[in-house]
Amino acid sequence: MRASRLLSLLLLLQARGRMTAQELAGELEVSVRTVYRDVESLGASGVPIYADRGPAGGYQLLDGYRTRLTGLTGDEAGTLFLAGMPGPAAELGLGSVLAAAELKLRASLPGELADRADRVRERFHLDAPGWFRADEPTPHLASVADAVWRERLLEVRYRRWKAPREVTRTLSPLGLVLKAGRWYLVALSRDRVTAYRVANVLEAALLDEPARRPPDFDLASFWSDWTERYERSVYTARATVRMTVGALDRMTYLFPPEMSRVARDSAGPVGDDGRLTTTVPIESIAHGHTELLKLGADAEVLDPPELRERFTETTSRLADTYLGAEQRDADAAGRAQAVDAST
């Protein structure tokens, strides 16, 4: 452990130049006193490290000195695939390992490439979650990731959308996917590969038995096919809607991508009234009602009849709520004027 810390200290100075004892202590998560001892040990071993005294001082290496002790460990090399995702890496319990891998990689680069790497870090950032969505609580993510990495069977208690709501499954984990801030476990269960939302895992236990992995399984290809099938299976009905051009444009920002895409592809010509007729995929009458309400009076449902009736009822109740309130206010104002006149 101490040897790894000494190497990290050396690489920090090599990559960043002069650093104070307090800065080194913060990076290494140790006390300042420990930094003093580590610097002394490096100096005693022949590393040309020296200190500048005073408020602007700090430790630095002799100009031109570079170590070649930058070999990555297996875990560190693996985390480099997460280098653009420090948040997800931390969720997987790999934040410190990723930081160590990046430091070693940075220290091993010659000056020009190292500067370019720093510019990339300063100018590009990946924010995985979608807008207006907080990260989902995934208390069992580390256990699930451990099963994926170690290729061990995983027994989970899982909450699903249909009855029975809670089920127990023994899974062969195949991979983890981060989709718009949501983690999904791709796993083999009863000779069928499918995806499970990690936030819905209520309990997870790693088993001693090795997991099974189908031959030639490719995680990226499976995920592409699965998401396409899933989106098609969710939207089991269609609604015919007459809407304004502006409403069709707003669907891009207000609706799930599949609903917006189909509506655009199905849009007919714009009439003299500035409206067009299109087809919108929906999951159910209730779902279509909730989603299409976002467009307000700029959209009129033509079909199916059940959905149109739902909107008719909604608009009637809204009219009672708002117009009725205005009438009540008007009646109350009239009564108040009558009282004033009588006095």
Rank of each mutant, 00 (worst) to 15 (best):
A51K: 08
A90M: 09
A90I: 04
V47L: 06
Q60T: 10
P86R: 14
R68W: 12
G43Y: 00
G78C: 06
T79A: 12
L72W: 05
Y50L: 03
Y36C: 01
L28I: 05
V32W: 00
L94E: 13
F81P: 10
E40F: 03
Y36F: 01
A77P: 09
G58D: 01
L94W: 14
V47W: 12
P86A: 04
A83L: 04
L28E: 06
L28D: 05
E91P: 11
G74A: 08
L72E: 05
I49N: 05
L82C: 07
A51G: 12
L94V: 10
P88E: 08
E40C: 05
L62I: 06
L69K: 15
D63F: 08
A44C: 04
L92K: 14
A89R: 15
D75T: 10
G54C: 02
R53Y: 01
Y50I: 00
G58P: 03
T79D: 13
G26Q: 08
G57K: 12
V39H: 06
V30E: 01
E91L: 13
T79I: 07
L62N: 11
R53L: 00
F81C: 08
G57F: 06
T79Y: 15
D38I: 02
L92T: 13
D52E: 13
G26P: 05
R66Q: 08
G57T: 11
L69G: 10
T70N: 10
S41K: 14
E29A: 05
G64D: 02
A44K: 14
D38P: 03
P86E: 07
D52T: 12
E76L: 07
S41H: 09
V35Y: 00
A51W: 00
S41W: 03
I49R: 06
L82S: 07
Y59K: 03
P48N: 06
T73W: 12
G71I: 01
L72S: 07
L72G: 05
Y50C: 02
